[in-house]
Simulated assay, not measured.
Amino acid sequence: MPRRKDIWRCGLLTLPVGEVLAGGLSHAPMHWLPEEPAFRFLADPFPWRGRDHLHIFAERYDYATRHGTIDLLTLDEGFRVIDRRPCLREDWHLSYPQVFDADGATWMLPEAYRSGGLTLYRMGKGPEGWVRETEIRLDCVPVDATPLRHDGRWWLFYSPADSKVTKLGHLHVAWSERLTGPWHPHPGNPVRIDSTSSRPGGTAMVLDGRIMLPVQDCTRTYGGAIRPLWIDRLDETGFAARAGAPLALPVSAGLYRDGMHTLSSGGGVTLIDVKHIDRSLAGLWLDLKRTLGRSFA
C-alpha cells in the first residue's frame, strides 16, 4: 500500500505570465490560499473574473474519499477568500477546471478521464451552476485537455489516458472550427513524446506572437515542475515546439517544494500550485482505515 501522498497548495500573483516566465517565481510576491485540513488539498487553480469579483475554480480533493470535485472560491480586492462553495460534482473524479469566455458564453472544460470521455460545460445562472453542453470526441480518452483559440480556429492539447507512460509523456493535438466540435485529431499524434515537457499544465496563450503551452516535467515525480513549451508550428499537418527551462519555485512556498503542475492566467492574475510529498505513518493509517471500511461495507 503506498504511503506517499501529494499535498498541493495554490498561490496567486498579479504579474502577467510573460513577466513570470521572464523573471521567474523565486522572489515573486505571492498571495497563498489557506492550507486545507490534513490530507486534503486544493489544486489545479484557474481564474475567472466576473462582474464584481475575481473567482478561482480549483480541484478539491480528500484522501479519505479519493474523489475530486470542483470548488468555486470568490476573492476580495486584497485576494482574501470571502466565499467558497462546491460548483461541480460528478460520479467520477474531476480536476483541472479551465473556465473561459467564448462565443457569448462562459465555459468549463474539466479533466474527467475516469468518465471515459471529455465533457464541455456551459455556465448557467452564475459561476456556481454548470450545465453539460456536449461531449468532445477525440482519438483517445484525454488527460488535462487544454483549449486555445488561435488563427480563427480552436486547438486542443491533451495527453492520452492509455497508460502511465502516455499520461505523463505524450502530447496530442486536435483542432475544430467550433468549440463544440466536431474535433479533428492531428495526423502526427502523438506530436511530442517527452516526459520532461508533454503533459499540459495550465493556460495556453500567445505571447509576443508565439504560442506558449505550460507543460509538466514528470521525470522525477508527477508534477515535478512546470516548463513553457514554445510552439513554433501548429497547423493541420505539422507541429514543432521547443521546451524552455523549468520554473524555479517561489522561496515563500516553504514546505511545498516537491513540485508544481499548474500555471494558469486570466482576470489580471497568474495562478500556480505547489506540492509537498507526505510520507507519514498517519497517511498510511488513513489508507488502512479506508481499505478496512470498504471490506466491511
Results as ranks from 00 to 15, higher is better:
G104R: 12
G104Q: 04
A105M: 05
A105S: 14
T106F: 00
T106L: 00
T106P: 00
W107E: 09
M108A: 06
M108P: 02
M108V: 03
L109K: 12
L109P: 06
P110L: 03
E111F: 02
E111Y: 04
E111R: 06
E111V: 09
A112F: 00
A112S: 15
S115T: 12
G117M: 11
G117K: 13
G117W: 06
G117T: 08
L118G: 07
L118Y: 10
T119F: 03
L120Y: 01
Y121M: 06
Y121A: 07
R122I: 02
R122S: 02
R122V: 15
R122G: 01
G124V: 03
G124H: 01
G124K: 04
G124W: 00
G126I: 01
G126H: 10
P127V: 05
E128C: 10
E128Y: 05
W130A: 07
V131N: 08
V131W: 02
R132S: 14
R132M: 12
E133R: 15
E133V: 00
T134R: 15
T134M: 10
T134V: 15
E135I: 01
I136T: 07
I136Y: 03
I136F: 06
R137N: 03
D139L: 02
D139E: 15
D139A: 15
C140D: 15
C140V: 13
V141T: 15
P142T: 10
P142F: 11
D144Q: 13
A145W: 13
A145R: 09
T146K: 06
T146G: 10
P147S: 02
P147Q: 09
P147K: 09
R149H: 15
R149P: 00
H150E: 09
H150F: 15
D151L: 14
G152Q: 11
W154Y: 14
W154N: 05
W154S: 04
W155I: 10
W155N: 04
L156C: 08
F157S: 12
F157L: 08
S159M: 12
P160F: 13
P160E: 09
P160H: 12
A161W: 14
A161M: 03
S163Y: 03
S163D: 11
K164H: 12
K164G: 12
V165A: 15
T166E: 15
K167H: 14
L168I: 01
L168G: 01
G169R: 04
H170E: 15
L171V: 04
L171Y: 05
H172E: 03
H172R: 12
H172M: 02
V173C: 11
A174K: 02
A174G: 11
W175Q: 08
W175I: 00
S176Y: 01
S176H: 01
L179D: 01
T180H: 07
P182E: 11
P182S: 12
W183I: 11
W183P: 05
H184Q: 14
H184L: 08
H184M: 10
H186I: 09
H186C: 11
P187L: 13
P190E: 10
V191W: 07
V191E: 12
V191C: 06
V191I: 13
I193L: 04
D194I: 10
D194T: 07
S195A: 15
S195Q: 08
T196M: 06
T196D: 01
T196Y: 11
S197M: 08
S197W: 00
S198C: 15
S198V: 06
R199N: 13
P200W: 07
G201V: 08
G201H: 03
